Amino acid sequence: MASLALALIGIGAGALALTAGEAPLQRIAQKGRAFAPGAVALKVGESVEIVNDDGDLVHHAYIEHPDFNFDTGEQIPGSRIVVTFPAKGSFTVLCGIHPKMKLAVTVK
Rank of each mutant, 00 (worst) to 15 (best):
M1V: 08
M1A: 10
A2C: 10
A2W: 10
S3W: 12
S3L: 12
A5P: 07
A5F: 12
L6M: 11
L6S: 12
L8C: 06
I9M: 14
I9D: 13
I9A: 15
G10E: 03
G10I: 01
G10M: 05
I11A: 09
A13L: 15
G14S: 06
A15Y: 15
A17S: 12
A17E: 14
A17M: 13
A17T: 10
L18T: 08
T19F: 15
T19W: 14
T19D: 11
G21T: 14
G21Q: 13
G21I: 10
E22Y: 14
E22S: 11
A23R: 03
P24S: 02
P24I: 04
P24M: 00
L25W: 14
Q26F: 07
R27G: 00
R27Y: 13
I28D: 06
I28T: 04
I28H: 05
A29E: 05
A29K: 00
A29C: 02
A29W: 01
Q30F: 15
Q30P: 00
Q30N: 09
K31G: 02
K31W: 09
K31Q: 11
R33K: 12
A34I: 00
F35Q: 00
A36C: 02
A36V: 09
G38Q: 05
A39H: 13
A39N: 05
A39F: 09
V40L: 06
V40P: 09
L42A: 03
K43G: 02
V44Q: 15
V44F: 12
G45A: 07
G45E: 02
E46W: 05
E46G: 01
S47L: 09
S47G: 12
V48W: 01
E49D: 05
N52C: 07
D53W: 01
G55D: 11
D56G: 13
D56T: 09
L57I: 10
L57C: 01
V58H: 08
H59V: 01
H60F: 08
H60Q: 11
H60A: 04
A61S: 14
Y62I: 00
I63Q: 05
E64M: 10
H65Q: 05
D67V: 13
F68Y: 13
N69T: 12
D71N: 13
D71I: 03
T72N: 05
T72M: 03
G73E: 10
G73Y: 08
E74Q: 13
Q75P: 06
P77Q: 07
P77H: 05
S79G: 04
R80T: 12
R80D: 02
I81E: 01
V82F: 00
T84S: 11
T84G: 03
T84E: 10
T84V: 12
T84C: 06
A87L: 01
K88P: 03
K88T: 07
G89N: 05
S90I: 14
S90R: 15
F91Y: 15
T92S: 07
G96K: 00
G96N: 01
I97V: 10
I97L: 13
H98W: 03
H98F: 00
H98S: 01
P99V: 07
P99S: 12
K100E: 11
M101F: 06
M101R: 06
K102I: 04
K102H: 06
L103M: 00
V105W: 02
V105E: 04
K108Q: 13
K108W: 06
K108E: 15
